[in-house]
Design a protein around this nucleic acid. Structure first.
Lengths: 184, 184
DNA sequence: ATCGCTTCTTGATTTGAATCAAGGGATGAT
DNA sequence: ATCATCCCTTGATTCAAATCAAGAAGCGAT
């Protein structure tokens, strides 16, 4: 249920969970539909109940750079755009039909006003959140793949390898070779 | 004055600036003194009035990996540790004698309770803040140096090149050669 | 003044991933 | 059924930065 979504952030009273349930809104999203377009402002936090999403930038006319891959039971947003309320550099697009819960920035502020415990939601504002290691360390291709295996194995089932390669900022060829080594 | 420190975050009334002035605390810090140690929790936001700081991880017994370099008139914290209130992986250490203003997490929450405008301080919680491009793009050594020249030229005066190289995640030799090219 | 240490530069070599190239297998459209 | 396209793999080559190595210049401590 909706109230379970925030248990990860701390201990909430029944009343606080009720507040939360009222604040979020359920939405159905179809494959390829956009939740965020380059140039518009990320106004909401999204919890993915089912389905999957890709977040990417346009690199050149041909290629997209995958910034993040989003699976069911994860929160999703563009943290930079959301926090600064400034135009997004990324697109967020459904990669499969999805059901989401939306919490707008206004609803979030209201929650915080009603109970400071909701300040815990700020954890979501850290870009990439649990994926932070992928960025600040500079890992070898093998270490990047290890990271996915250990931390986000679901990606391998949900997305084509070339998207995962882009997400890891390596070429598909390199990912293929890394996987060959790991298979042994 | 202290009240100027937050003007960058939005428009504050005289009363709100007064609240802020009372919430922060001035401290003098000596060279090499630590404001944050690995394993302890980042409890405060720091505004550097004068002086400079390095933030780094221990890579191996010998070397440190510079995570961020902090100059006067900048805010400083370990965003991950601060937001999650979990043990830091980094040290923050004065590289020169410094004067800082400290805003504890508790004082910050109190401010937000008193006026939601202080929610703007959340901008500080984005790791690396304005430096974000250094991380999510993968830039060439030349582009990284260009970034420093354009965005943080003060670093070149305040820190030895080997620290800047570490910050940029390139070797000192590569930085030296890049600089040679730029000099022409 | 000397020694030791750090900083920075410059050159030679190595190395790991990108690029270039090709092909096989699966999938979808007509 | 055929063709086109996409996905993934595999091999050969290239290239940029790391590594290895050496030395000059500056600085602090004694």
């Amino acid at each position: 249920m909706q109230s379970d979504i925030i248990q990860q952030f701390g201990n909430f009273t029944d009343y606080e969970m009720k507040l939360f349930s009222v604040a979020v809104q359920e939405r159905k999203i179809f494959k390829n539909e956009f939740l965020l377009q380059e140039g518009s402002i990320c106004q909401s936090l999204y919890f993915i109940s089912s389905g999957s999403f890709i977040q990417y930038k346009i690199k050149d006319e041909i290629d997209q750079q995958i910034i993040d891959l989003h699976l069911a039971n994860e929160w999703m947003l563009n943290p930079q755009s959301f926090v600064r309320q400034q135009p997004s550099e990324t697109f967020i697009q459904a990669f499969a039909d999805a059901t989401i819960y939306e919490l707008t920035v206004h609803a979030m502020h209201d929650l915080i006003k009603q109970s400071p415990v909701f300040f815990q939601l700020a954890k979501l504002l850290e870009p990439a959140h649990s994926r932070i290691q992928l960025f600040d360390n500079q890992l070898s291709p093998g270490e990047k793949y290890r990271f996915v295996l250990d931390n986000r194995p679901g990606l391998l089932l949900a997305f084509p390898l070339k998207m995962i390669a882009s997400y890891l900022k390596i070429t598909p060829e390199t990912l293929s070779r890394v996987r060959e080594k790991f298979a042994k």
